[in-house]
Simulated scan of single mutants.
Amino acid sequence: MKVFRRVLLGIIAVVVVIIGYIGVEFFMGYQAAKEVNGSQANAPKVVKRKDIPDILQVALVGSDARSLDENGRSDSLMVGQYNQKSHDAKLVSIMRDSYVDIPGYGQDKINAAYSYGGYPLLQETLKDNFAMDVPYYVTITFQSFIDCVNEIFPKGVTIDAEKEMELDGVEIHPGVQKMDGNTLLQYARFREDEEGDFGRVRRQQQVVTALADQVKDVTSILKLPKAVGKLMGSIQTNLPQSFLVECGLDFVQGEVKEINTLAVPVEGSWDFNDNTPSGSVLELDLEQNQQAIKKFLNEE
């Protein structure tokens, strides 16, 4: 009986140490991110876990803001759909030069909506123009993206680069290679060629898919709590952190199927217009794009 008691106490002690280690490492990562990004003066109201549907849609916003207290422009804008039961994942990328009606501001590029009124205005803009009601969102700044990639993927992210490119002093050569956070960001942002936003959206989807596919292989179990803490401290969202960790584990454990993607505007549904107050834009056939999105998300 004494032996059993010792074994039981030993197991309890090990569990306590592990939980304590995870908690401390998570907190250290979270605090490190907060020191860089600052506290969120206008932090969003977090929804309750029980109110999140099995199939949810969440906007993924990459902002050029310098901190989470600023809105900045949505340099990248995607809407992800995730089925928590089937683990099906879909990703709709919306090109930043899409010329839309921003409520209260008139016609402008869609990337301006986040700058004008944060996510509430962007949510309204998505609903009015693309018939997508997206109540949840996650935003991250450029620098936070770089820091999180470097923390979670210390050996880099494997990418098959499409072509020769250079942006913000970063040179990228074609072929399979390991990219650190800054290189990966510039690869996803590059649009200084004949494809413009079309090529950039394709590369952004390539980057998201690579991150999702490789996350389960790159970080040791000892480093994972701090990496997760850093990620949680680097984003702004109205989803519970526990829920995000839960979804993240689905990717880490390999339960999520291949991510299906759609780029908006879809083929044959847009025209270039260089003569607008916003500069060169993409004028869209909204109805055609609404139908394409609806079909892709299986909402018909």
Rank of each mutant, 00 (worst) to 15 (best):
V16E: 01
G117Q: 00
Y82C: 00
V3K: 08
N42C: 03
S93W: 02
M179Y: 14
K216S: 03
L282W: 02
M28Y: 11
I11W: 08
E192F: 07
K226E: 06
L224K: 04
I102K: 09
E171R: 07
K2L: 02
K109V: 02
N42V: 11
N273T: 01
G199N: 10
Q186Y: 02
K257A: 09
V207F: 11
A263Y: 10
K223P: 02
R189A: 01
K2E: 11
C247V: 14
V15C: 12
E25Y: 13
V218Q: 15
S93D: 01
G20M: 00
V46F: 04
I146E: 14
N260S: 15
I293M: 04
S76T: 13
P265H: 05
N298D: 15
S115Y: 10
K90T: 04
L77I: 07
F190W: 05
P103C: 15
D69Y: 03
P103R: 15
S280F: 06
L77C: 11
Q143R: 15
N37Q: 00
S144I: 09
G38N: 01
V252E: 11
D285I: 00
Q186A: 09
Y114P: 05
K127G: 06
V61Q: 11
A292T: 00
L122E: 03
G62V: 07
D168Q: 10
R189G: 00
V138E: 12
S86L: 03
I52M: 02
V281K: 02
E124C: 10
L56S: 13
E171V: 05
D213Q: 11
K2S: 03
E300L: 00
R202Q: 12
R200P: 14
V79E: 02
I293W: 13
K90L: 07
E194R: 01
V58T: 01
G106P: 12
